[in-house]
Simulated scan of single mutants.
Amino acid sequence: MTDTDRRAAYVEEIRRGAPLSDELARAFATVPREAFVGRGFQDRHGRWTKPGDPGFLDAVYRDDVLVTKVDHRVPISSSSQPSLMAIMIEALEVEPGMRVLEIGAGTGYNAALLATLGASVISVDVQADVAARAASALTEAGITGVRVDHGDGYAGAPGHRFDRVIVTVGVGGLSPRWLSQLDPGGVAVVPVEHAGTHPVLAVRGTADGPVTASVVCPSGFMSASGPLTAAHQFAHPAPAAPGELAALREEKGPRFDPPLGALGYRDLWYAAGVWHRRATHAAIPGVDQNCLMLLDEDRTGGAAILPDGAILSGGAEPERWANDALDILKRWDAAGRPPMRAWQVTLALNGLPDAPIWVPANWSL
């Protein structure tokens, strides 16, 4: 396959997962993604692929995440799935000449796409080696208009003003400093923790409030560290890892025929997170995929809702948790099975006293 054919197929694959403007399609077609993974990457099967390996370029030009840094088998930096990048960039509504603050440099590929659209970008990453590699890759790819800083993402870029903010790491809430650096009328596109995942929010407001948001799309990101993921009163429990849960048994049979598809299941999941503070996700014994879970306080039981609407429960109070799960299903049905994009969010200032964050606190349809 020629380079031109490969990139054309890549754009069409992205287009199947995300709407693409002509300008963004051209950016994906022209920015060389391979320049941003020069040291290789880990695929979804745990294999490390390097330049020159068979299939390297085919894997690079695929609508998939490329993990570029691992710490004790835990991914800590990556090039995000291109269709998700496209959705987030389109939500920014970037125009030539705009100034963009990016939190989380990753490989530098996202900033390169923004710069190709005509934006001026300052990208901040807390990992010094990640920031250095991103800067080097941008130079190698011939991308101008991007500055990569090694620094604390919570602080943003002091002394600068921006038209847009984009965050490429999962956070518990928004730093007020991002909003103080955002010009009036600007928007911040941010993956904010909700029920164990990171739905992307389009956020508007000022550092002192009020701050509101609409939901853009589902996503799952690596989590930030420090005050951006500090515990707060509206937080959901962390996901249950394999081995944490005791065996669950079926309490209620399937409700949906056919089962919910991936997006429908995410819509239900989002609503569950609105209506229940113990909603998260969990590795369920005997189930192939991570599932929506109402996790009990001991983190050994509760109730799982499967894509077909079946409810599994276990632990100390299985009936109580199963009833909570059934209430969520009935409520979602009664509301007309709203998509997550239908929710409007009001944020509240919470988190650490000396480094607060704006976190989702109230929702309306």
Rank of each mutant, 00 (worst) to 15 (best):
V37L: 15
P259M: 08
T116H: 14
A361G: 05
A134T: 08
P307Y: 01
V31Y: 04
G104W: 02
R266T: 01
A9W: 00
F41V: 07
R266V: 01
L248D: 03
A325L: 10
A141W: 12
S21E: 07
S80D: 06
D53Y: 04
Q233K: 09
G170V: 12
G314I: 07
W332Y: 11
Q181R: 07
E297A: 15
E12Q: 00
L117E: 02
D129M: 04
Y265R: 10
S225R: 12
D327V: 09
P184D: 06
T139V: 14
T4H: 05
D288I: 06
M98Q: 15
D149I: 15
S136L: 14
A231P: 09
H150N: 12
L101G: 06
A18D: 03
T212Y: 07
A105W: 02
P258Q: 08
T107D: 02
M85A: 13
V148Q: 09
I103K: 10
P32W: 06
A247F: 06
C291F: 01
V70P: 01
N110R: 08
V203R: 02
I305K: 01
A282N: 01
S79M: 13
P237M: 06
N110T: 15
R26A: 12
W178L: 12
E23R: 15
P199M: 07
P318Q: 08
A279E: 04
G170F: 05
M293W: 02
L201H: 15
V216T: 05
D308K: 02
T30Y: 02
D354T: 14
R26W: 05
V67F: 13
R26D: 08
A262L: 14
V171M: 04
N323C: 06
D3C: 01
Y109F: 14
T49F: 08
D5R: 02
G142I: 13
V200T: 10
A322F: 10
G108R: 04
I89Q: 02
R26S: 10
A262G: 11
I103M: 11
A91S: 13
N110Y: 05
L365S: 12
G186M: 07
E193Y: 12
A29T: 00
V359M: 07
L248E: 02
H160N: 11
A304H: 00
P218F: 07
P158G: 03
L179W: 03
K50F: 11
R278Y: 06
I14C: 00
D129H: 08
A247K: 15
R133F: 11
A303S: 01
T68Y: 00
K252S: 15
L174T: 09
A246I: 08
N290A: 13
E244G: 14
L295W: 02
R147D: 13
V171Q: 06
V74W: 14
G302A: 06
L306A: 07
G209P: 06
V70T: 10
P191A: 09
T346A: 15
L24M: 06
P75I: 12
S120T: 15
W363Q: 09
R278E: 13
T4A: 14
C291H: 09
A325P: 11
L268Y: 02
A240P: 11
V211Y: 00
G142Q: 13
W178M: 10
A137P: 11
G226R: 14
D296E: 10
